[in-house]
Amino acid sequence: MNHNKVRKYLLIYLDGDLDDNKCSQMEAHIAKCASCRREYERLQHVYKGPQHCRRESAPPFLWTRVNTRLKSLQRERRQGELKTVLPILQPLMTATLLIAAVFCGYFLGNTPVHSDLQQANVAEEVMQQTFDIDVFDPNPPQSLGRAIMMIYERPDEVLP
């Protein structure tokens, strides 16, 4: 193994990821080459395997910040949902009202209207048959109007 190859594989050798054959070649080279050994020692000093790495730990109060952020995001999402629904709902409601108004107009326009005379005849017939009353008689019998009329028309018969 030459110097370049040894230097290329130094970290892999340090992590113990080289196969046995290459590993023994590396060991042999490092044992006899002073400059490669120096490089190896420097690297070994600086680069330690994963088990030696300092882990960063989360700062205190991070949970409070995460929780606050989450709550505000939930609020924003709810408002956002309303904001997205409103622009759809508004034209929908307007269209519904417009359609209802057109339908009402069409329905009213197509409804047949009875004439006054027809209505009056029907009413007269019903009253006559049911209550024996002539609704078009202005002074029906037993009424005050008929009594007054009798006095005017035939006073000799009515008045003593």
Partner: peptide, 20 residues
Amino acid sequence: RLFQAKQELCKKLLPLLKDF
């Protein structure tokens, strides 16, 4: 990836460690 990363890292680290 790790093999290449370590090779590359070694290449970058060695010059930085000259004054170490």
